[in-house]
Write a protein that binds this DNA or RNA. Structure first.
Length: 187
DNA sequence: AGGATGATCATCT
DNA sequence: GATGATCATCCTG
């Protein structure tokens, strides 16, 4: 993994998240540009790692560069990039991606949708990319590759979606104007 | 544009 | 037994 990416992934989630908007993610040859992410850490009562390491949250306490996948509402997989130092408990939820690679394969998994909708939303993103709990605990660099791009000029920080606590915390980062962002008007 | 609903299961109490 | 870091669909205005 290149040194700059290594550095970004060693940052706290709140600092790493905006730098990951615009980065390229590829999962077994299928991927695109990340356009929406959300930071979670041990100070956040909505985070799985709140209260310390136990059960399903253990991957969040690995060093930055690992993958944390969990089941949401019994129906969807959600994928996180672990950031920060080992033992801290931080991760960035991947919420939206603009497809650039393997679009026919995404369409076969998601149905006949416009490109922009294939990986919009955390559950749809994992489905389009073929990510499941088999990818939990993995480290970037094998099946899953992340490449930083030039920092984007227009990264918006917004409130969050679908939570019952700490919903107004500004922890959701997205690219202004992208059509692969959920609730773009909810700032 | 926004509110209500049900699907479905790993994890937690 | 209850709870969601969601989504598609159906409604209302």
């Amino acid at each position: 993994m290149n040194p700059e990416l290594e550095r970004v992934l060693s940052l706290p989630a709140l600092q790493a998240a905006p730098l990951l908007v615009g980065a390229s993610l590829s999962v077994r040859g299928v991927g695109g540009r990340l356009v929406e992410v959300e930071a979670y850490d041990d100070m956040d009562p909505a985070s799985h790692c709140y209260g310390g390491p136990r059960g399903r949250n253990l991957p969040m306490f690995l060093p930055g560069g690992h993958i944390y996948v969990y089941r949401s509402y019994g129906v969807h997989w959600c994928m996180n990039l672990v950031t920060g130092e080992q033992g801290k408990g931080e991760a960035v939820l991947l919420r939206g991606l603009e497809p650039t690679q393997g679009i026919p394969e995404m369409r076969s998994r998601r149905g006949d949708l416009p490109d922009q909708a294939l990986a919009r939303g955390p559950g749809n993103l994992t489905k389009a990319l073929g990510v499941t709990d088999a990818d939990n605990w993995l480290r970037l660099g094998g099946d899953i590759v992340l490449t930083l791009n030039c920092p984007l000029a227009k990264v918006v920080v917004a409130r969050r979606i679908g939570l019952t606590v700490a919903i107004d915390e500004p922890r959701r980062f997205f690219e202004a104007g992208s059509k692969s962002v959920t609730h773009p008007s909810r700032i």
